[in-house]
Design a protein around this nucleic acid. Structure first.
Lengths: 145, 145
DNA sequence: GCAAATTAATGATTTATTCAAG
DNA sequence: CTTGAATAAATCATTAATTTGC
C-alpha cells in the first residue's frame, strides 16, 4: 500500500507534545482501555492542541498498553525461577483428593510471568469428558461448562 | 501456619516459563477442566520442567478459566452500560466511530505508581454526548518525546 | 555542519484468542 | 457447532533519532 500521500496531510497522526502529555497523564491515572464515550471526550479535548481523531486515541492506548506490557515482560524475563523444590505439602489436599475440591477460590497464583519458548508437545488432551478415566477422583466431576 | 516456610522455597508453586507455556497451550487446545487422569498426565509432563503437583495443575486451570471469564465479563458489562450505538471500526482503516470498550483499568499491573494518584483534571465532562469534532491547528508540528 | 544511511519508536493493520448467544 | 463482540498480540509501515562520511 504505497499510499503516495502526496498531499500535505501527514500520512499518520503525529501527537503534539501537549497531546502526548495529556495522553500519558490519563494513562498514568488509570485509563487503559477507554470506551467510545471516553475516547470521544478525550479526542474533543485533545483536538484543542492539534488535529486528532478518535481512532488515534484508540490506537494510542492500545499501543501504549501493549508496549508497556511488552517492556515489562522483557525486563522480567531475566528472572529465572528455578527456586527448587518446596516439599512441605501446602494447605490444600494431597494429590488424591484435591480433585474433590468443589470450589476453588480464585486468588492464589497469578500466572504472570511468561516465558519464551516455542516448542511444546502436547499429548492428545481430548477433553471430551469421557476419553480418559478418572481413577480416584471421587465425587464432583466438575463438568466443564 | 505450623510450618515456618522460611524464605526461599516459595510456599506456593511458581510455574516456570516452560510450564506456563505448556499450560496455556493446553488451555488453548481446549483443556478447560481436566479430569484426574488428564491432570496426572499433564503433571507428569510438566514435571520435566520443574517441581509441580497435580493440584497445581488443577488450580491453574480453575483460576485461569475463572479469570478469563471474569475479564470478559467485565468488558461486557462495561459495554452494556453504554452500548448505545458504539460501532466497532477501530481496527479498520475507515474512520467513522470506533468502538466501545469496557472501562479503563488494568490487569497487567503496571509496576506500581497507583497509590496516591493526583487529581487529574480529565477535562470537565462538558461536551458530553456528541460534541465530536476534531480540527484545529491543521499542521501541528510533530515533535514530541 | 549537513545529508545519506541506519536504527529505534511508534502509529496503523491484520490476525488469533476468548467467552457468550443462538 | 457456528457466529458475534471485543480485544490483545503480532505485524507492517512511516516517522524521528542517531550514526557516519564528507
Amino acid at each position: 500500500m504505497s499510499q503516495t500521500w502526496s498531499r500535505s496531510s501527514s500520512a499518520r497522526w503525529c501527537p503534539t507534545p501537549e497531546q502526548l502529555m495529556i495522553l500519558e497523564e490519563m494513562y498514568r491515572n488509570g485509563a487503559r482501555t477507554p470506551n467510545a464515550g471516553q475516547i470521544q471526550q478525550m479526542t474533543a479535548h485533545l483536538s484543542r492542541f492539534g488535529r486528532i481523531e478518535g481512532k488515534n486515541v484508540f490506537y494510542w492506548f492500545q499501543n501504549h498498553k501493549a508496549r508497556e506490557r511488552q517492556r515489562l515482560r522483557r525486563r522480567l524475563i531475566g528472572r529465572h525461577y528455578q527456586l527448587l523444590y518446596s516439599a512441605p505439602p501446602p494447605p490444600p489436599p494431597q494429590e488424591a483428593e484435591w480433585m474433590a475440591m468443589p470450589e476453588a477460590d480464585d486468588e492464589s497464583s497469578p500466572p504472570a510471568c511468561h516465558g519464551s519458548l516455542r516448542t511444546l508437545e502436547l499429548f492428545p488432551t481430548t477433553s471430551t469428558g469421557g476419553g480418559l478415566k478418572d481413577e480416584s477422583t471421587p465425587s464432583s466431576s466438575c463438568s466443564a461448562n
